[in-house]
């Protein structure tokens, strides 16, 4: 019974240590779901030829309808041109967060095979009438991108 309790306490220590390690350690850095445009530029060598994900806001005024659909993804500092032949989800609009999956072309533009729209945590009735300002929309990006966007 005593050895079992030591076993239990050991398991708790391992569990708490595991959380701390993931929270503070390297694993968090490796768990990258998407790169921001700035990160994509930094990791250009790694991104070449590979399927990567790019996340950011759809730059205002950058959407050009057609086949392919083109628009620019920005994190407030850097911008990447994206083109896709996919039909975007209905929520797609200027200033919304998107995550695109695809490859970087030779000219530096992003060829997207999959276009995903990111929703923020705001839920409002339409009668508010107010469209969210772009600064607030940057809140849907990760912290690094947010601080970059508001110097």
């Amino acid at each position: 019974m005593k050895s079992q309790r030591i076993f239990a306490i050991g398991a708790i220590v391992v569990a708490i240590g595991g959380i701390a390690w993931i929270a503070l350690g390297n694993l968090g850095e490796n768990l990258v779901y998407y790169w921001t445009p700035a990160e994509l530029h930094q990791n250009a060598a790694k991104a070449a030829g590979a399927t990567v994900r790019l996340g950011g806001m759809v730059k205002t005024g950058s959407i050009v309808q057609g086949t392919p659909l083109t628009f620019e993804v920005t994190d407030g500092t850097d911008t990447v041109k994206v083109s896709t032949s996919e039909i975007p989800p209905a929520m797609f609009r200027e200033g919304i967060g998107v995550v695109v999956e695809g490859t970087v072309a030779a000219d530096g533009s992003f060829q997207s095979k999959r276009l995903m729209v990111k929703h923020d945590n705001e839920y409002r009735a339409p009668k508010d009438g107010k469209m969210p300002d772009e600064k607030a929309m940057f809140g849907t990006l990760d912290d690094a991108a947010t601080t970059a966007a508001t110097p």
């Binding site: 959380i19 993931i22 929270a23 968090g28 768990l31 990258v32 779901y33 998407y34 921001t36 996340g55 995550v99 995903m116 990111k118 929703h119 923020d120 945590n121 705001e122 839920y123 409002r124 009735a125 508010d128 849907t140 990006l141 990760d142």
Partner: peptide
Amino acid sequence: LVYFSVKWWASLHQVQSSPSTVDPAM
């Protein structure tokens, strides 16, 4: 990890809502 995943890492899923980000009627 599930709870903090949206805060710690860049994700497609939005972060937790709070009463200040949700309409009172919702």
